[in-house]
Write a protein that binds this DNA or RNA. Structure first.
Lengths: 221, 221
DNA sequence: ATTATCTATAGATCTATAGATAATGC
DNA sequence: ATTATCTATAGATCTATAGATAATGC
């Protein structure tokens, strides 16, 4: 068919299809011919949009990590609410395509994130958070978010109401009882309590001295 | 050479070499011929020890996740110290071969860990931790550990004394100042402060009512 | 007879390039 | 002339099996 009347591909369509394919079949099953088949074209056509497989994967990583819309927050919000909103959104993006998580780690070296970290620290500093806590907060929240996203299925799925397999009450009675106490929380809500617990630790820990508000509001039960 | 006088392979040697190879070159560069070359044999010999590539990778995941020696703790240690010791050890194992982390996630489905979770919850219950906190603690610590391990290089490496690239004081002044406050902490120590911060949150949060000791000891500065 | 290696190889990929071809824009 | 697709293909893998071979144990 050579050149079609209307171009069937765009770089964005290619990336979107790559994300979907990796999400469904996993990174190991990903290849240029398979992606092309998914898009209804032949493999060489993809090289018109990306120089090689690696630059396509870089674009995939960037897309997964980038929010669709920037976060907007009320003016008077506490800095912790801002961080929680950001973290919840990041986790949600990763969880949507957990198979892409290794790409994130591989193609987003920390030094390229200095700019973003600088912004966050400035924001924290402006909110009165002492420098000694800023690293703990940013790094801890990042680790918690990434870890929670990669674990993927979490406790909420193992409670009776969730999707996953549920532990047997006879074989695992204590785990069972513990899970019953979170019955009704979605995995988003559960993740949010993790974040708030962590921030409670930051605020309530011995190093806490110059924080504007005494505690982070907890989720309503 | 056919059969050698002394068998040159064992399942364990194969797994060890696989871990080393994946650690050095990454999961994508891993293949049976390359692993065989590393061991000084031909690829088909590996199939004598593992039915296929996948069962070899399962064995790799198991090896990375399993501690060499079980943790021993003083009798009177607080439960939080026990959890911290476990988490620090797990992170250290993952960080040693961060390229294997995707294997862990892929080949260790949560339901196979019910047994371990049951044990942890029993341990927490015996220490007087209410059921409502047990999930938060176990899941939160796991996420924090996995996330911190996968992020790999952490803030400690970006401080002046660390290995990694350091942010420029002119371009990233606030980040720079924040990192200077953790100067001198190793990445292990920094991770431990994350864990203690999280546990401070668990203990100090509003849900805290029946905890035996009021606060978790912080690392000495 | 069994074990642990080997050689040889079928069969299925994959990445990336060269060069043809048809549509479009100037 | 340029663009976006195609066909064809070189060249390099990889996984896994069949079957040979030499050392060992009975």
């Amino acid at each position: 068919m050579a050149r079609p009347k209307n171009a069937s591909l765009t770089a964005e369509k290619v990336v979107d299809a790559a994300i979907a394919l990796i999400g469904e079949r996993g990174l190991e099953a990903f290849s240029m011919p398979k992606l092309a088949a998914e898009l209804g074209v032949r493999a060489p056509s993809l090289y018109h949009y990306f120089a090689d497989k690696e630059s396509l994967l870089v674009a995939v990583a960037r897309m997964v990590a980038t929010p669709e819309a920037p976060t907007t927050m009320p003016e008077d919000a506490h800095w912790s609410e801002y961080l929680i909103t950001q973290s919840v959104a990041l986790r949600r993006r990763i969880v949507r395509y957990p198979q892409c998580a290794p790409l994130l780690v591989r193609y987003m070296p920390r030094e390229k994130m200095f700019g973003e970290y600088e912004q966050l620290c400035q924001f924290l500093a402006a909110s009165g958070v002492p420098a000694s806590l800023q690293v703990s907060i940013v790094d801890g929240m990042t680790a918690l978010t990434l870890g929670a996203a990669i674990l993927g299925e979490n406790a909420a799925d193992y409670a009776d109401s969730g999707d996953g397999p549920s532990p047997d009450p006879v074989e695992h009675p204590t785990l069972r009882r513990a899970l019953d106490t979170i019955e009704g929380l979605s995995s988003d809500e559960l993740f949010e309590t993790f974040l708030r617990t962590y921030l409670d630790g930051v605020l309530g820990g011995s190093a806490c001295s110059a924080t504007p508000t005494p505690a982070v509001r907890r989720l309503p039960r």
